[in-house]
Simulated scan of single mutants.
Amino acid sequence: MSIEVSQLTRFFGRAPAVRQLDMSVPGGAVTGLVGPNGAGKTTLLLMLAALLAPDSGTIRVAGLDPVTQAREVHRTVGWMPDAFGTWDSLTCTEILLTFAAAQEMDADTARTRAVEMLTLVHLDELARTPARVLSRGQKQRLGLARALIHSPKVLLLDEPAAGMDPRSRADLRALLRDLASDGTTVLLSSHILPEMEEMVDGVVFMSHGTALPTPSEQGRAEAEGPGGAAHPVPTRRTWRMRALDAGRLSEWVHSAQPSVTHEEDGTVRLPVDDDAAAARLLRKAVEAGVEVVSFAPLRGALEETYLAMEGERR
């Protein structure tokens, strides 16, 4: 596991922001952090980034202790807060060079890296533009470039897509998937659940400063007894398939994929592990003579799970 948290607690005055939190996050994956306002998500991310000390409990980020090894954690972690927060008079390039210098990168490497990062987030044409004239979405993209300037092993993102246009959000999804494929651990917090659903491998639900079990996990814990950290819940998605001949689709799907849900219009819902599994399933359907008209992921499953959780019912 790349991130391990045990009995983590942080108070602000008498109010607990995070309380006795146990959590494990795997390396080389994109994990979502989901919860209502005031759940403790930002406080948790700040402690993981070695920017806020816990009152009690232990943290390990890539094997490092943010309390006793804060500088090493800063070199290992890329941190993107929900607000840009930098010097508006500096240009995009100057901001990245400043943060590269803080990471003790040599000047030549920093300049090369700054150009690469601005190109990556499609801000290369604004390299000499002061930050004060950037839009909210452009500042978010610059904040992402700033977090990546030193090639971190762990990336912590707080509402990274806020203010971004649809094209930038699509680019963000692709970038995070690529980073995870290269071994980077990504932990992101967002309230945009349909957007998060398309980019994460699993989620951790939080409320009132601690991790929540899903209904299935809660039932298992009651049967087996408590113990152990909260692990990300895999986001196995549901896809909807429609064909010209609903009867032929129904006949094929029962032989190929038993776990299906039929809808009144003749379409079926199928649980699919990932995009590669979806591609294989579609190929099998076509090879079996099913004339598929549409096949696409069903959005909203993550939101349904979130709303169904006992701790979040109103």
Rank of each mutant, 00 (worst) to 15 (best):
R240E: 07
H262A: 15
H262D: 10
A243G: 02
V253C: 05
L244D: 15
W252I: 07
T235E: 07
L270I: 15
G247L: 09
A277I: 05
A276G: 07
R269G: 07
T235R: 00
E264M: 09
T261P: 09
A276L: 12
L282Y: 06
D245V: 06
H254Y: 13
E264V: 15
R280I: 11
K284P: 02
P232Y: 02
S259V: 13
D245W: 01
P271Q: 02
R236F: 09
P271D: 03
D273S: 13
H262L: 13
G266W: 03
A276Q: 12
T235F: 08
A285I: 07
H254A: 13
T238S: 09
G266C: 06
A278C: 06
S250G: 10
A278L: 05
A278W: 02
R242Q: 10
T238V: 09
T235Q: 08
S250T: 06
E251W: 11
R269H: 14
D275A: 13
H262G: 10
K284Q: 15
W239V: 05
A276V: 15
P271Y: 05
D273P: 01
S250F: 11
A243R: 00
D275K: 02
R283S: 11
V260W: 10
E251Q: 12
H254F: 13
R280Y: 12
E251H: 13
T267P: 06
V253F: 02
A279D: 14
H262N: 11
P234L: 03
H262I: 07
A243I: 04
G266M: 05
D245S: 07
E287Y: 09
V286S: 02
P234N: 04
T261N: 10
S255T: 14
D245G: 05
G247N: 11
W239K: 00
A277N: 00
D273F: 09
A279L: 13
D265Q: 04
K284I: 09
W252R: 05
S255R: 15
